[in-house]
Design a protein around this nucleic acid. Structure first.
Lengths: 157, 157
DNA sequence: TTGCTACATAGGAATCATTCCTAAACAGGA
DNA sequence: TCCTGTTTAGGAATGATTCCTATGTAGCAA
């Protein structure tokens, strides 16, 4: 499925959503990205074309698209929300250095058995695997660092 | 390993952490909980015993304990951070109704192969599986609801 | 084509978790 | 017991997200 404007507008129609220039541009930017952008990322990307665009609108649009089932909110960490228009079943690899997220579509991961030890009446509807590690670039800079590799900043010295 | 005060204080010493009453109480509350509490939860739990306790101190303490490797930050959703003192390898089941988190220790989940399709120089160091679904209680209330089951509040009507 | 109406947008203010800053308190070693 | 560096508490600051509201506009119906 190529990403024509037509195509997007039809998707919106099917979901009962009005198709406005801003909404279309935001969704298009998200579909074209594989970087799991934040609301702010999308704002920065669409802003040049629509200088009046409000970050607010990006948030609103994303929540509408999410409710319509056209985008997923990818929650890596409790920091800002990141979004994904890739609806096919997939999992994520997160680099703990640069925080980039890669998609993984290994079919073996889509056949995990339901975990044992759950209450009988708990119904699992989906699952996601989040792999963590370091990408090549971040591994190099980790090695060249002499300081501690830990994440945030409590023990400052 | 029972949870004596001695025990906790020794752990702190081993990590080079001073052992203060507040710190001990916060860690103890976390170890005793299986609910993956937030900083605020822990504050509410310890506050009665230490009325002068500051929420700030809870945040600081958690970040120190996390850096020391005594607690893990469990990030379910991009909302507030939740914490876990269970250091043995395990995964999570999240109820999308009540947002409660259960631990899953199915050993089959600890032997997943590294996913295919990654750049060669990406090094995976850990992974976690997050199962989502509805617990018994929330399934019941979902059935009795006639309104839409969607998550947040964009299309209000 | 024109008008209507409900949904969208923009902008500013509000909220809420978390972090920053700083002065006073205190744990643990000398 | 004294000293020093860590910890604590409290208030202010930050930053993502949501709320509020007036204006704009897409899409339907006449």
């Amino acid at each position: 499925m190529p990403l024509t404007l037509e195509n997007i507008q039809q998707k919106f129609r099917e979901c009962g959503l009005k198709s406005t220039p801003q909404r279309t541009a935001i969704y298009q930017a998200l579909v074209q990205s594989t970087a799991h952008p934040t609301a702010e990322d999308l704002f920065a990307q669409v802003s040049p074309t629509y200088p009046m665009l409000s970050l607010n609108t990006v948030y609103y649009t994303l929540s509408v698209l999410r409710t319509a089932g056209l985008v997923l909110e990818v929650n890596i960490g409790h920091d800002r929300a990141r979004f994904d228009a890739n609806l096919s079943p997939h999992h994520h690899v997160i680099c703990q250095g640069c925080q980039n997220i890669l998609d993984v579509m290994d079919p073996r991961l889509n056949r995990l058995a339901s975990p044992s030890g759950l209450p009988d009446d708990f119904e699992i509807s989906s699952y996601q695997v989040a792999f963590r590690g370091y990408c090549g670039a971040c591994r190099k800079s980790k090695i060249s660092m002499t300081t501690s590799p830990s994440g945030k900043r409590p023990v400052s010295s």
